[in-house]
Structure formats: C-alpha cells, structure tokens
C-alpha cells in the first residue's frame, strides 16, 4: 500500500482497524516495562522519591506539544491541499493533546509543591504551558461551534497556525526568561544532565506515552471518519424526505 493510498478514508479505516489492536498491545507491554523500571529507579540525591513524578510529567509535556505540532502540520494539509483527512487528523488530535497538556499541568503542580513549596507560579514555562491548554480548549470549542466540518476545519487550522507560536515559547521560555522551572535537562547541547539510571526509565515511559498517543489518535481518527459518514447519511436521508 502506497502512502498516498492512506489519504483515502476507506483505506485508512482498513489500516486503522488492523493496526489499532497491535499498537494497543505494544503500548501495554512498553507501559508495563516502563512502570516497572520507573518504580525500580533510584531516588534522586536532591529530590528524593518525587523524581518518580518526572516519569509522567516530562512525557506528558512532550506529547502536549507534539499534539499541537501534529495539528500544525495537518493545518497546512487543510489550508493548502484542502484534504479532508488532514481535517480529521487535526480534530482527532485536539482532545488527546489537551488531555496530555492537562496531565502535564496537574503532575507538574503535584511535583512543584514538595520541590518549590508551591503548586503554581506565574513563570514563563508554566504560563506558556497553560496557554497551550487554553488554545486546545479554544480549538475544540471552534470545532464544536461551526457545524459544517470543512468550514470548521479551515477556522481551526488558522487558529492552530497562530497558536503554534506558543510551541517555541514553551521550549525556550526557560532560556529566555528567569524561571522557577528548571532548564532543559534531557535534549540539550552537551548531552543529558540526568543520570542513566533515571534517564532510561524516563525514555521508556516517553516511548510508552508516545505509543499511547498514536494509538488513541488513530482510534479517534477512525471515530471521526465514522462520524462524518453518519452525518453524510443523515443528510442524504433528510434530502430524500424533503
């Protein structure tokens, strides 16, 4: 099957039906290994056991941003090629990205209280992450407000492209401003500053969360294609009656 064939919704559905159970199974296996490694990881010399929150917080933060990045690519597909599957991909990614961003905010808050002495502070990293969550809510609301899917897709695509400005702000906020949030410690010039016994479980958990994201995204895209079929059939039925 050529990649271009996947742009056909029916062929995409066939592929999704075949791959979702396998992806789901792989996700469970990698999660089981990741959680096992996370629980066995040693405590941090400064943070103690609270470093275990990092195994949830960091992958959630990455996936919240990945979700918007994916929507940005899909937005080009919507606005430039006007491809319906790009609309479907963007719409399906929004609630999943929002959930991971919320998870990042909640786990970050629960990590911040014992380490910083506060659940929340209006520093650049936390605020820009909150802005990302609000952008997700805005784009979901937009999809729900405009009834015609193609019009909703174009409006959401424009908002997505504008909102993409927040991604580099989140990433570089810790470099551009003085923040309570620590700087980059995994992907940075000069290598990671995290000791391998903690870094490895983090990377395994990141793979597990990423697999979960793509499994859910594929399943949500399948749901959206079916939803559009239902809409088309209802319109056909209504036209036949009138």
């Amino acid at each position: 099957m050529a990649i271009a064939d996947l742009a056909n919704p029916s062929r995409f559905l066939t592929l999704a039906n075949r791959s979702i159970p396998w992806l789901g199974g792989l996700t469970v296996i990698v999660f089981a290994y990741g959680i096992d490694q996370a629980m066995l990881a040693p405590d941090d010399y400064q943070q103690g056991a609270t470093v275990k929150i990092m195994f949830l917080h960091v992958p959630s933060a990455w996936l919240g941003m990945l979700g918007w990045g994916l929507m940005t690519v899909a937005a080009f597909g919507t606005l430039v090629w006007r491809h319906p599957l790009a609309d479907v991909a963007a719409k399906a990614a929004a609630p999943i990205g929002a959930a991971f961003t919320l998870l990042c905010l909640v786990t970050g808050s629960l990590w911040g209280r014992p380490e910083w002495g506060t659940y929340w502070v209006w520093d650049a990293r936390l605020t820009s992450e909150l802005v990302l969550f609000l952008l997700y809510l805005a784009v979901i609301a937009l999809w729900r407000t405009v009834e015609d899917p193609s019009r909703a897709a174009r409006a959401a695509a424009i908002l997505t492209l504008v909102g993409a400005i927040d991604l580099p702000i989140i990433k570089f906020s810790v470099d551009w401003w003085n923040t309570l949030h620590q700087g980059a410690s995994v992907f940075r010039l000069g290598g990671s500053t995290i000791y391998p016994t903690i870094l490895m479980p983090l990377l395994v958990m990141a793979v597990a969360f990423t697999l979960l994201f793509f499994t859910l995204h594929l399943a949500a895209m399948r749901n959206e294609i079916l939803r559009r079929r239902v809409r088309t059939l209802r319109l056909m039925q209504a036209n036949a009656v009138s």
Binding site: G48, A49, T50, K52, I53, L56, H57, L103, V106, T107, L110, W111, R113, P114
Partner: peptide, 11 residues
C-alpha cells in the same frame, strides 16, 4: 512526598 507521588499517578 509519597502523597504527591500517589496523587500524580492517580491523576
């Protein structure tokens, strides 16, 4: 701190 860790995993 255990309460924060459990709360994060529960959330």
């Amino acid at each position: 701190h255990m309460g924060f860790i459990v709360a994060a995993y529960a959330a």
